[in-house]
């Protein structure tokens, strides 16, 4: 395999390196940071939806678990941010592992229903347990201190997240071209065929679900610390949908598509602020338009157009 698989990674690295020097102010830096956070979550989700072919309409629930673990454990129980973050990831992972066996017996719309239900239950819990979570108003989150070093300010966060994103991209590219990743794609392509060559389908679905849930939770923690505040919206059904939309618009089973999808959909609401009241209509129309004319998503469609896969 030629190195060309990583060309995109190098391009992104270069863009990330020069971007802060081109952006006029912290507003754009903040936008870039949020794009990177979303891109990381979407990468994990795309492994599940795009590569393994298993839909999840409740992934924001896992983001919420991470965000609230970081908020609640540090604020109410004075845990260190790192310990809280890991506890959230552990919680998300255990929950995902517990529900994975029964959930992944389901297919298609039944799977969509089950994951949606799981996500909604998490978001309702977060909203209701006001004594811990602040309820619908949300709660503040202390800064992210790792050992004696504290990350603060857009600049620092930008570099930290650039590192996380590049690492995630590199690892994802590796993963999908490893024996594990091929088994994952194979069970999407044909479940029986993958079974008869020895792929324990249930185990692989569980593994990637847990993996993407843990990753979503970790990024939820990062978001909470970065923003310094968390509201139940992070765990909402609508946030789940946003994440899935990023996957699909960028391109299912496309690593770089995940980044593009996250960038576009994070920027879109900003771009639509000029529509005064019509934002929702515009957002909905754009979703429909993209999906009708590019059902495979942006990156795969363009790649096919320019004769590359």
């Amino acid at each position: 395999m030629p190195r060309s698989r990583f060309t995109g990674l190098i391009v992104i690295a270069v863009v990330l390196a020069v971007l802060p020097f081109l952006l006029p102010n912290n507003f754009y830096l903040d936008l870039a940071i949020r794009m990177m956070i979303n891109a990381c979550i979407v990468l994990g989700l795309n492994l599940l939806i795009g590569f393994a072919g298993q839909i999840s309409l409740g992934h924001a629930g896992f983001v919420g678990i991470g965000a609230y673990a970081s908020a609640v454990l540090t604020t109410h129980y004075s845990w260190s941010p790192l310990a809280a973050m890991l506890a959230g990831a552990l919680g998300a992972g255990v929950l995902a592992a517990l529900v994975a066996r029964p959930i992944f017996k389901l297919k298609g719309h039944y799977l969509a229903m089950a994951t949606l239900g799981l996500g909604i239950i998490i978001s309702i819990i977060v909203r209701n347990e006001a004594a811990l979570t602040g309820g619908p108003d949300g709660m503040p989150v202390p800064a992210l201190a790792l050992f004696s070093f504290e990350i603060s300010g857009e600049k620092q966060w930008y570099w930290v997240l650039s590192g996380i994103l590049l690492l995630s991209l590199w690892a994802s590219l590796n993963l999908i071209n490893s024996p594990f990743g091929r088994a994952l794609r194979a069970l999407h392509g044909s479940e029986v065929a993958s079974q008869v060559v020895g792929v324990d389908v249930a185990k692989y679905k569980l593994a990637i679900f847990v993996f993407s849930a843990v990753f979503a939770s970790l990024m939820g923690s990062v978001t909470a610390h970065y923003v310094g505040f968390v509201t139940p919206n992070v765990a909402d059904f609508f946030h789940s949908i946003e994440l899935v939309t990023m996957v699909v618009i960028g391109g299912m089973a496309s690593i770089y598509g995940s980044v593009i999808g996250a960038v576009l959909l994070t920027a879109l609401p900003q771009a639509l602020t000029g529509f005064e009241g019509w934002e929702t209509v515009a957002f909905g129309s754009i979703l429909m338009f993209c999906m009708i004319f590019m059902p495979k998503g942006l990156v795969p469609t363009l790649a096919a157009k320019f004769g590359r896969r």
Binding site: A171, N174, S178, A183, A193, S194
Partner: peptide, 30 residues
């Protein structure tokens, strides 16, 4: 029952599944 989401060569490589080290983390870290 061919995996249409993969290349021909990858389809064959999947056949060797059980003869490979399938660890997720080793794969991700190459």
């Amino acid at each position: 029952q061919v995996c249409m989401n993969m290349t021909a060569l990858e389809n064959v490589m999947v056949g060797a599944h059980l003869r490979l080290d399938r660890n997720l983390f080793k794969g991700a870290l190459r």
